[in-house]
């Protein structure tokens, strides 16, 4: 690397938009540990009560879970498009529309999740004295299920609100990029929740 190239490389990350990006990455690193503790709790339960976790997982709605996974993966692609459009001044309206579409996909996800929660509540799958499954560990599974999907949904609501506010104004490229990072992270968490909550020994 020539000296000029090296200098260009060093000055690049200190640009103003990168400060926001760096801040978001630091926040996301702390979020990894926030959700990470729950994933450890899950692995403990799954290794100690494998039958209970498998029996409980078969009571989750795999069709709605898969549909929601597809919605969230698609929303990530849409927000990535918004980031690409935000780089160009004349694409501003399109950027706004793509952000609004991402928020709408997020709302669809939350609505589907609500339908699932309602069905699970009706079927006695909420941990407590009236819990429907007798297999040991099944209740632990559903306790983790509701805490993890609940926390994830709270993150979704924050993301939908952020993208909605950005879509209404004249979105600046740097802000769109930072909001998109957050949205992708919420998608990342769900990518791991999907096999762990919905796909435990479906063949059984």
């Amino acid at each position: 690397m020539t000296a000029a190239a090296a200098a260009a490389h060093i000055t690049e990350p200190s640009d103003e938009p990168d400060i926001g990006k760096l801040g978001m990455w630091v926040f996301l690193a702390s979020e990894v540990l926030f959700f990470g503790g729950l994933f450890v709790a899950y692995l403990y339960g799954r290794t100690h009560w494998p039958q209970g976790f498998a029996a409980a997982s078969r009571h989750t709605d795999v069709v709605l879970g898969t549909a929601n996974t597809a919605i969230l993966l698609t929303s990530s692609a849409v927000v990535a498009l918004a980031v690409a459009c935000a780089q160009e001044e004349h694409q501003r309206r399109r950027t706004s529309r793509l952000l609004a579409l991402t928020a709408a996909l997020g709302l669809a996800f939350i609505a589907i999740k609500g339908v699932e929660w309602h069905a699970e509540w009706r079927d006695g799958l909420v941990p407590g004295p009236a819990f429907a499954l007798a297999v040991p560990g099944a209740q632990q599974f559903f306790a983790l299920y509701f805490v993890m999907t609940g926390l994830h949904a709270v993150h979704m609501i924050v993301g939908v609100a952020t993208l909605g506010i950005l879509a209404r104004g004249r979105p600046r490229a740097s802000r769109v990029e930072v909001a998109a990072l957050y949205w992708h992270f919420v998608d990342l968490v769900w990518i791991f929740l999907y096999p762990l909550l919905y796909l435990v020994e479906r063949h059984g």
Binding site: H9, E12, P13, D18, K21, L22, W25, V26, L28, A29, S30, E31, V32, L33
Partner: peptide
């Protein structure tokens, strides 16, 4: 850049 990759890796 290396800084952001480092932060992601540390998490």
């Amino acid at each position: 850049g290396p800084l952001i990759r480092l932060v992601a890796g540390v998490g």
